[in-house]
Design a protein around this nucleic acid. Structure first.
Lengths: 212, 212
DNA sequence: CTGCTATGTCTACGACTGTAGACACGCTGG
DNA sequence: CCAGCGTGTCTACAGTCGTAGACATAGCAG
């Protein structure tokens, strides 16, 4: 009851380097996802981890390097889409509709991307993170030719839904019933998953590049 | 060849209030589209118009009000999608693929939105602009029920393509041939335009969670 | 117990931001 | 001609940003 300075509950930060580093990184993911790269200051990240701003730079070198590790952390563990092509459209549609629901507020890598991509340096880091974690796996999962661009088109659709539902918060899409949204999304994603009857099998006279 | 201070070509800014205001607004659209709301400073906008920063605030009150007018200007004249439902998918797909080509660099409202939406105040202004200019018209153009959410889903798809192709610049999608992209997009948009076999289609005016 | 080193904090700096008030100047009405 | 007013600029001020160097302290080795 006195001015006992130690905080009740958890640990008063028992000088553990790896634990502190972990706390900073978790706080960074949360702050960058919520505020974006430009909007989240190092003092904000540090405060979320219960340390001072300088310690952040001491552990991560700079804000940019911290962001790179946060992007890696945010994208790595997530299975953005199912690995099973047969259930990919249903699973992706359901998950996306659920996670973008008005009440849910997860820490999603798409949110981190959308709110940070305005900064060119951050955009480059994000692009590298996508290529490293989801790009290749998604291209391997999608059947048929042109898997890589089709996979990125799927990412574009997902990102757009996140943007309109949770960032810009357009009313009709935000208020869309989860079941209706799931159905619509599944119809859309199936177009991307099922190899379309692309007349591009014959080489048209487009700009030469057969695009692998 | 003398030190004639007046810039060649255009006018040496002949103290015309409306023309100056117009120059500031044009510079603001350009700067906000290129750098985003947080990234573009009033000094940058002012410099682009050949005036000082204070004049910007004199004409527009604050950076936020300037941004609101820039959003209005950026969204107003554009016909985001065709008004003709029968040609909507083809026209939208072609236009989107062309304007997001690697070499083209237009001032597109979607770019302005993507790079500014991280800021919550800017996001709200953008949402209002979308509702005012494109939302209603798009809902009127799309046939069938649930036109408003389907229209915003189309906007989400368009925004996602802009994001991945031009902001994050994912390589496979950025390098996708224009013809292939147009085809893929048209297939996708047609799913949104053609009234899907929505099993929940009977009831109207159900904002509630009625379905399922 | 004593001292050393890793761990964390404090103070501060230079740059940049949006914005306010005072000042200067060009154009137009007499 | 010249006075006035609208148009544009200058200086400045709080505030925040990322970051650097000096300082303090906790926890373990001896």
């Amino acid at each position: 009851m006195t001015a006992d300075t130690d905080e009740s509950g958890t640990a008063p930060r028992r000088r553990d380097a790896s634990a502190t580093r972990e706390a900073i990184l978790n706080s960074a993911v949360e702050a960058f996802t919520r505020l974006g790269y430009d909007g989240a200051g190092v003092r904000e990240v540090a405060g979320g981890a219960g340390v001072t701003a300088m310690l952040v730079n001491r552990y991560f070198g700079s804000k940019e390097q911290l962001f790179a590790e946060a992007v890696d952390r945010s994208f790595a563990p997530r299975t953005v889409v199912s690995d099973d092509p047969s259930e990919l459209s249903a699973q992706t549609a359901t998950t996306l509709a659920a996670r973008t629901a008005p009440d849910a507020n997860d820490l999603d890598p798409f949110l981190l991307m959308l709110r940070s991509a305005a900064n060119p340096r951050a955009a480059e880091i994000i692009r590298a993170g996508i290529e490293k974690h989801v790009g290749r796996r998604l291209a391997d999962t999608l059947p048929g030719p042109h898997a890589a661009p089709r996979g990125e088109l799927l990412l574009a659709l997902i990102a757009g839904v996140w943007l309109m539902r949770k960032v810009v918060a357009t009313p009709a899409l935000s208020g869309m019933s989860q079941a209706d949204l799931t159905r619509q999304l599944q119809d859309l994603i199936e177009v991307l998953v099922d190899t379309p009857p692309a007349s591009s099998g014959d080489d048209d006279a487009s700009d030469g590049i057969k695009s692998l």
